[in-house]
Write a protein that binds this DNA or RNA. Structure first.
Lengths: 129, 129
DNA sequence: CTTGACCTTCCAGTTACTGGAGGCCTTATC
DNA sequence: GATAAGGCCTCCAGTAACTGGAAGGTCAAG
């Protein structure tokens, strides 16, 4: 398979696949003409990466997860720790965003949104203290 | 006030304040020795920026909001549009994160987290299709 | 007069790509 | 055989919003 084929089949842009090679997540072979030649195993790794990224894991998490995936002597505790830490970061992020959402919803609801300059949103942002 | 004072009073790191000057959000005067001299108005702007950033507005949103804040002929509709759009992006982000959270919670709960290699998390990431 | 806390600028690094320039390879068509 | 389209290559720059650090000037205290 050439890069276009694995891009189609993994759902990842070709640019991203080249980038993953550059940072050492995959190591496809090369043809005589310099083209990357992807084996099924490469595609499988890319699909793994695509799913892990879709769950919000960082690239470094992905690197660790991939290493564990390929290590048959792994302890599931190591995988679980990575996932749990990531889940906690996601929960913290959701909490942050919800706080913003609450405040913004209030402010947007309070704003007339007409041609007049009076605006509760700006009043809040510019309040003293 | 020197930069350390406004950093303390605005809650923003000095580095960030210098950065905000660099990108044209503020324009403090300079003393003869080259030090930035901040007026109360500069501090007020920085506090405005700190609050807008805390609500998750992008720097470009902040720039627009600050311009509206200082324009007495503004229409509150312009402010409201920026805030509503931002709120929508936040809501979309929350939805994304919640989907990740749901999946991750399931996977983490299903994983024994012991010394054995068997792991539902990796099984999910590596599943075919 | 030196010490330490400030302040300055400039450069590099962060995350995970993304866009684009310039150019080679392959295949099909005229 | 020339050419055009499409795919592939590398390399460079840019994104968002800072953050860290180096190298060096300034200021107040003792």
């Amino acid at each position: 398979m050439n890069i276009g084929d694995v891009a189609d089949r993994s759902g990842l842009p070709a640019k991203t696949i080249r980038y993953y090679e550059e940072i050492g997540l995959i190591s496809p072979n090369r043809d005589g003409n310099g083209y990357r030649r992807f084996a099924e195993q490469d595609l499988h790794k890319l699909a793994f990466l695509a799913r892990a990224r879709a769950l919000g894991f960082t690239i470094e998490d992905c690197r660790a997860l991939l290493a564990l995936y390929e290590d048959n002597t792994r302890a599931s505790a190591d995988v679980k720790r990575i996932a749990r830490d990531h889940l906690q970061r996601i929960e913290a992020k959701i909490a942050d965003l919800r706080a913003m959402q609450d405040t913004l919803t209030e402010l947007v609801d309070a704003c007339a949104g007409d041609a007049r300059p009076d605006c509760p949103i700006l009043r809040d942002l510019g309040r003293e203290g």
